[in-house]
């Protein structure tokens, strides 16, 4: 067993875990944070995508021990006081989900894209979501939703979607600078 300390959606957890425990199983089975689902065993589907230290990762392909000392944001940590982020709103308004199983991962991957590229083209959105599979929507409305969320977060509110779930702590941008949300 290995001791870990992980902040998940703003709460600090201290646990003893088997080194082989996958981060996604830690979230689901130990912390009861079942909003992040598992869709495959080869890191292809992206359903389990969460944010670790400010970057999207596939939580089925990260050991819990690797997240020690880190900060994890899941889909359950995005909404603030019941207010959805622009991406969550856009997914709803553009009918970007059907069964909803891929949705947490899609939203987390899209959030990652918009942080790096606040004004993507539809082609860039499609490319950025290459690691997230959906079997229901044919992706068209997902692309529309991400573009709509980008539209909504232009100008001074750019990055709002990313900021919404980051808590008060700093996060790392692509260039490695510390910024405070």
């Amino acid at each position: 067993m290995t001791h870990i300390s992980v902040t998940v959606d703003g709460t600090v957890y201290e646990d003893e875990v088997e080194p082989r425990l996958l981060l996604v199983h830690y979230l689901r089975d130990r912390l009861g944070l079942t909003g992040t689902p598992v869709g495959c065993d080869t890191s292809n589907c992206g359903a389990c995508t969460v944010e670790l230290d400010g970057m999207s990762v596939k939580s089925c392909t990260v050991l819990a021990v690797q997240a020690d000392g880190g900060e994890v944001t899941t889909v359950q940590g995005l909404a603030r006081d019941g207010a959805w982020t622009p991406l969550q709103r856009a997914f709803h308004e553009r009918h970007a989900l059907q069964c909803g199983y891929c949705t947490p991962g899609m939203i987390m991957a899209a959030r990652d894209l918009l942080r790096e590229n606040p004004h993507p083209t539809s082609g860039e959105v499609r490319q950025a979501l290459e690691g997230n599979l959906c079997r229901c929507t044919g992706y068209q409305n997902i692309v529309r939703a991400v573009l709509a969320a980008a539209e909504e977060t232009t100008g001074e509110t750019a990055g709002q979607d990313s900021a919404a779930g980051d808590g008060a702590s700093g996060r790392r941008t692509a260039s490695g600078q510390e910024v405070t949300a």
Partner: peptide, 9 residues
């Protein structure tokens, strides 16, 4: 290589 999330790790 792979996809953005994999490239992060």
């Amino acid at each position: 290589v792979a996809d953005p999330a994999v490239r992060h790790r």
